[in-house]
């Protein structure tokens, strides 16, 4: 089966800044793919390269096997949900949603009917006559989604689409996006700097740093088996410690140990509590473990030692992931 999007050695430089640097990437047809990374890591530029807003300085981009270099955005059967939604302020909701059909020469009646259907699909039936400015953030987000889907694109790009929403709404939209993607069977490419979002939504994740991809894999892969200290730290702020100290490998290699895998165990090894913070469901302990700082997340129901006291800790060596040399 042809991949939805393929990058082969793609670079995009802005002056001396290598925004995207020799990236290879395959996004499969029908998957929910997340591009995760800190700001300036190149994930948004990659998205813009797929949409056609940027052209690569080197390398090849293909969309469903068709070469996309030199093809302007409007000729790509790819649609985007923008970070700030980018709804047209001079049009009402219906005309925003119908825009893609209008520029393809679809008649007014037909495109209005299609727009109403698309709005119903995102649970905004009857909102067609309103202006974008009159909607809440969550509603604008849905309008942007309906507008991107109305052209029936082969790939949907989402640029931090949930960034402007509050926590509760964000969790609700995450589920909705996921189920919409499954129903439509479309390829979704999702850019985010929020690792929780990426982990909970994506089939596969690419972790970006400094214009390059550090690791591609399933959420489980990325979380449990980070390939480098950067990935371990960025995705779920793992403890990174020498492998021999973790009791899981040879000296000179690094290992990652998730904070929730550090257990309080009366039979365990000694560590000193340096700080304690209550986080609701869990308590976060900062420990001094033989000169190595360790974070432990302990379920709140457990009795937790005071700062300055000694804690006894252990972990399952199978939970320790030893990274490749030099990572």
């Amino acid at each position: 089966m042809t991949d939805a999007v393929t990058f082969r050695g793609v670079s995009r430089h802005f002056g001396s800044v290598k925004a995207v640097d020799a990236v290879d990437l395959s996004i499969r047809d029908g998957e929910f793919f997340a591009m995760l990374g800190p700001s300036g890591s190149g994930k948004t530029t990659c998205l813009r390269l797929i949409a056609g807003f940027e052209q690569p300085d080197a390398g090849h981009i293909a969309i469903f096997g068709e070469a996309a270099e030199g093809v302007p955005p409007y000729r790509r059967n790819v649609n985007t949900v923008f970070q700030s939604y980018a709804l047209f302020p001079h049009m009402n909701v219906r005309d925003n949603v119908a825009f893609g059909l209008r520029v393809r020469g679809i008649g007014r009646a037909a495109r209005h009917r299609a727009a109403e259907e698309a709005l119903a699909q995102v649970e905004l039936a009857g909102f067609g006559g309103r202006r974008a400015g009159e909607l809440s953030g969550g509603q604008r987000q849905r309008v942007a989604l309906a507008r991107a889907l109305i052209n029936k694109p082969r790939v949907v790009l989402l640029d931090e689409p949930l960034g402007a929403l509050d926590l509760k709404l964000r969790e609700q939209m995450q589920e909705e996006l996921r189920s919409l993607q499954r129903t439509l069977g479309l390829t979704f490419v999702f850019v985010t700097h929020d690792q929780d979002e990426a982990l909970s939504m994506a089939d596969r994740i690419a972790v970006f740093a400094e214009g390059r991809i550090r690791q591609v894999g399933s959420a489980e892969d990325i979380y449990r088996r980070p390939s480098s200290r950067f990935v371990a730290d960025f995705v779920g702020s793992s403890n990174v410690l020498p492998a021999d100290l973790a009791g899981a490998g040879p000296a000179g290699r690094w290992a990652s140990l998730r904070p929730e895998d550090v257990l309080l165990d009366p039979a365990g090894r000694e560590a000193t509590v340096t700080a304690r913070a209550f986080h609701g469901r869990v308590t976060k302990l900062t420990l001094d473990f033989g000169g190595q700082a360790l974070i432990a997340l302990v379920p709140a129901r457990e009795a937790v030692p005071e700062p300055g006291a000694t804690a006894r800790i252990s972990w399952d060596p199978a939970r320790v992931h030893v990274m490749e040399p030099g990572a």
């Binding site: 000729r75 109305i150 439509l184």
Partner: peptide, 23 residues
């Protein structure tokens, strides 16, 4: 809004001198 099976990933260029120039 089910997916059109044979929809191309990339559309043909628009016809006309003005569109070509704009491209």
């Amino acid at each position: 809004m089910s997916r059109a099976a044979a929809a191309p990933a990339i559309f043909a260029p628009r016809a006309g001198l003005a569109a070509g120039l704009a491209d």
